[in-house]
């Protein structure tokens, strides 16, 4: 506004100077001063117009900048809304809270890790060549091998299951034997069907398979088997309960050891008694023999003397000798 007023004022001044100059010319009295005034007014107007032009430029530039800021504003708004959406998404994600135990680190050495891997490998890693009856040689999408294979455990474990349900405390060994044989025969059947099914071109005849693969038909079971459960610590616990004994503090092994020791002690005592008896018998026998010898000697002596009065002394002599013999033995 100020700019326009300024221009207007200068324009008026030019007009006025021009008017005064024309008046002075019409009165035939031109003046240099008036002409100079007009020139000055004109140059001021030119300056004002230059200002106006600059102003116009600035306006255009301001306009440009405004568009630019508007664009940037939109961009910022988009970014912020995207950020907000991301934040909301983050907030809505359920947080998995690490339990207090998993936060505490448990350090272990590589050696321990390897030892563990070695220890579990016999239960987690099937021996080479064991396929558990699954056929991986053909395309996995072909459905044919799976149904035949899935029959395998079904038949065997159902058999075992009936036994389990029926006689819970019975010995598990026969059931297990049955399980393995059924599994093996079932596997053979599944192989037979595979061969007759059309892939026979790349398959070995059944009778050659065990030669190529010693584990042919074997099943690797990655969990404790029934016979292990039936033969384990819990089974002996259960057995004691069934026998009406309190398993707490009762160790069958210690019990057996105790019985064995008792038996041994009894045997040792018997042996000792037998030895003592033998010894006593031996002594008695020796004594008898000695007595017999003494008697014989006395008799012979008596005969030699030809005495008739010895008849009454003889029993006393006998008794005396017996007594002396006993003393001798004790000294030995």
């Amino acid at each position: 506004m100020a700019l326009l007023q300024n221009i207007d004022a200068r324009f008026e001044r030019v007009e006025r100077a021009l008017g005064t100059l024309i008046d002075s010319i019409t009165k035939y009295n031109p003046s240099n001063k008036l002409a100079a005034d007009l020139a000055a007014a004109d140059s001021e107007l030119v300056g004002a117009l230059a200002d106006l032009e600059r102003h116009r430029h600035n306006v255009a530039r301001i306009h440009d900048l405004q568009t630019q800021t508007a664009q940037l504003d939109t961009q910022i708004r988009d970014t912020i809304s995207a950020l907000w959406a991301a934040r909301r998404e983050l907030k809505n994600t359920p947080v998995t809270r690490p339990s207090s135990d998993s936060r505490t680190k448990h350090n272990f050495t590589t050696e321990e890790l390897l030892a563990y891997a070695r220890r579990i490998s016999r239960n987690t890693m099937p021996p080479p060549g064991v396929t558990n009856g699954f056929d991986f040689s053909t395309n996995r999408n072909t459905a044919s091998p799976t149904p035949t294979a899935t029959q395998t455990p079904s038949a065997s474990f159902n058999g075992a299951e009936i036994k389990t349900g029926g006689t819970p405390s019975a010995s598990g060994t026969p059931a297990n034997g049955e399980t393995t044989t059924t599994t093996a025969s079932q596997l053979n059947i599944s192989q037979a069907t595979t061969v007759s099914g059309g892939t026979a071109a790349t398959e070995l005849p059944i009778h050659l398979k065990p030669i190529v693969n010693p584990h042919e038909g074997a099943t690797f079971i990655p969990w404790p088997e029934e016979h292990m459960i039936r033969g384990g610590a819990l089974a002996s616990f259960s057995l004691l309960v069934d026998e009406g004994k309190d398993p707490r503090g009762y160790d069958p092994e210690e019990e057996e050891q105790r019985l064995r020791e008792e038996e041994e002690a009894r045997k040792a005592a018997e042996e000792q008694a037998r030895l003592e008896r033998d010894e006593a018998e031996r002594r008695m026998r020796e004594e008898h023999e000695r007595m017999a010898r003494e008697r014989e000697r006395a008799r012979q002596e008596a005969e030699r003397r030809g005495s008739v009065a010895g008849g009454a002394e003889r029993p006393a002599q006998q008794a005396q000798f017996t007594f002396l013999d006993g003393l001798d033995d004790d000294d030995d």
């Binding site: 099937p126 558990n132 699954f134 294979a149 455990p153 474990f157 099943t219």
Partner: peptide, 16 residues
């Protein structure tokens, strides 16, 4: 039970 057994027997050989 049967499905779990089959899956278990299959997984252990398939994994290795």
């Amino acid at each position: 039970t049967h499905v779990m057994m089959t899956e278990g027997l299959r997984a252990v050989v398939e994994y290795h």
